[in-house]
């Protein structure tokens, strides 16, 4: 029980620290907003082979024909989900090399699903605004958190396979 409490304390402390740092204006301007812009650019590049009527302008993804646009804001860039994963990985005992691999691959996994979220919302919004709202506000945040859980579960399984005695007994 004590070790679990220790894990939760380290997890929450790391989480709150990273979350607070993320909210700092210099971090938002220097890191988060450029990263979010790159997500919009990457999303448009992935869509372009199938739909050449899409452009990205900063954090905005726009359909040229209809004028419909989505702006990628805080909470939609996958950074908060990545912070949860990073806090979990850092709080869980493993070698630093293992932690860094988990964070790097986990970040890619989260962002892959997040780009799917952005693209799906871009088209759902053009189809039906009510469905877009529900999916955007309630459905995708839960799916992204489940993605974090899946990544963490895979990480634990990987740790157990690297050190087989760790999770068996």
């Amino acid at each position: 029980m004590l070790v679990m409490t220790k894990f939760l304390i380290i997890f929450l402390a790391t989480l709150l620290t990273l979350f607070s740092v993320e909210m700092l204006t210099p971090v938002q301007h220097g890191v988060i907003q450029p990263f979010t812009t790159s997500l919009a650019t990457l999303s448009s590049l992935l869509i372009l082979p199938f739909d050449d009527g899409v452009i990205s302008q900063g954090r905005i993804l726009r359909d040229v024909a209809t004028g419909f646009a989505v702006s990628i804001e805080s909470g939609c860039n996958g950074v908060e989900a990545a912070i949860v994963l990073i806090a979990g990985v850092l709080a869980f005992p493993a070698r630093w090399q293992q932690k860094l691999i988990a964070i790097a691959l986990g970040f890619i996994a989260i962002q892959a699903l997040n780009i799917l979220r952005i693209v799906s919302l871009f088209y759902l919004g053009q189809w039906n605004y009510t469905v877009f709202e529900w999916t955007h506000l309630y459905f995708w945040p839960v799916l992204i958190m489940i993605d974090v859980l899946v990544v963490f579960a895979i990480y634990l399984k990987w740790l157990a396979s690297v050190e087989p005695k760790a999770l068996t007994s």
């Binding site: 679990m4 894990f7 869980f92 005992p93 493993a94 070698r95 634990l156 005695k165 760790a166 999770l167």
Partner: peptide, 13 residues
């Protein structure tokens, strides 16, 4: 829970 706890107790770091 037990498996997670055992992993936490056996701290390789």
């Amino acid at each position: 829970w037990t498996a997670l706890q055992q992993r936490l107790i056996r701290d390789p770091a």
